[in-house]
């Protein structure tokens, strides 16, 4: 009788659980909540703005124009034959924006949701996950803008004669997943670390900006490689840029859409591997933090 009773407990609330106690079953049970958070984000995003979703294409367009002026017209960076610099930049920025939106959106999860986290329990990881999913909508809109300009350049100008969509475009969903996992993983690590020591949150905004310059957004990776051979850029910087998983992602994205840069399955696997590793590490750190953060935040 006694034994039967102790076996019956549904669950136990105790001080410490194992580091690897990732309850995927529980996350799955709360999938409806994830979708409802996404719905909330979508419904409430454009409340009380005049331009609404227009903001999603104003930002990448203006950034691309500026980048084209500064990097291509003034600094004369070559984007490859038959690829209009504007389109080149727009592709890089669209992809980069999704990653940075995921990272920025998730990096203050604990701080932003302090109120709700202090009152009810649900798997905390639902929050950053929902951010990543709702950011897909932003990415979708920006991608659509890119496609529009793409069609314009291909059909109405001579600038994009060699620009063809590569068959590797079928791997686009994989690429989006990699970006999401990377952004989510880093975001979770940062948000966990900022609960106790707030210093890191100051670093995020400008760190993401700096990272963009190291991720081949406005220049092709091949340029860095030639510069390293020429000796104008130290070798370690070259390594830093080429082993940056986001460089790989952006290069692959441009390869799929514009057929510039080179594509290798090895690189894709490398990026996928790094993103999964970062995501798992983020999940572990996040999981460890979520049980104590309400006392330290």
């Amino acid at each position: 009788m006694n034994k039967h009773e102790t076996d019956d407990w549904l669950y136990t609330i105790s001080p410490r659980k194992g580091v690897l106690n990732l309850n995927f079953k529980e996350i799955w049970a709360y999938r409806d909540l994830l979708l409802l958070f996404v719905k909330r984000d979508v419904i409430t995003l454009y409340k009380q703005t005049i331009l609404g979703p227009l903001w999603y294409f104003i930002q990448p367009l203006f950034t691309s124009v500026i980048f084209t002026l500064v990097f291509n017209n003034i600094a004369e960076i070559k984007t490859g034959d038959g690829v209009p610099p504007f389109l080149f930049n727009l592709a890089g920025i669209s992809a980069w924006n999704y990653f940075s939106a995921c990272l920025n959106g998730t990096s203050d999860t604990f701080k932003k949701n302090q109120g709700i986290f202090g009152k009810v329990y649900f798997p905390r990881v639902i929050m950053p996950m929902s951010t990543v999913v709702s950011n897909l909508i932003q990415f979708g809109i920006q991608f659509l803008v890119f496609i529009c300009f793409y069609l314009y350049f291909v059909f109405f100008t001579d600038a994009a004669l060699q620009t063809t969509i590569n068959s590797t475009v079928l791997l686009l969903p994989v690429l989006v997943c990699i970006m999401a996992l990377l952004g989510l993983g880093f975001g979770m690590i940062i948000s966990s670390m900022t609960t106790k020591y707030r210093d890191l949150s100051f670093l995020v905004t400008f760190g993401v900006q700096l990272l963009m310059y190291g991720s081949a957004v406005m220049y092709p990776l091949s340029l860095i490689e030639t510069k390293v051979i020429e000796g104008t850029i130290p070798e370690w910087v070259g390594h830093l840029i080429s082993y940056n998983p986001m460089t790989t992602v952006i290069e692959l994205f441009r390869h799929m859409m514009l057929n510039v840069g080179d594509f290798s399955v090895g690189k894709l696997i490398y990026a996928a591997f790094v993103s999964i590793a970062v995501f798992l590490l983020g999940l572990i750190v996040f999981n460890k933090t979520e049980r104590q953060f309400i006392d330290t935040v």
Binding site: W9, L10, I13, G118, K119, R291
Partner: peptide
């Protein structure tokens, strides 16, 4: 807060045979 899993106890444990839902402050979320 400990019962509703918002924070974890420093020592000791709570065993339960059912789902716990809390209404610590209304209108959460």
């Amino acid at each position: 807060k400990i019962l509703s899993k918002v924070t974890s106890p420093t020592t000791g444990e709570i065993k339960t045979k059912g789902r716990i839902a809390s209404l610590l402050e209304v209108g959460t979320g």
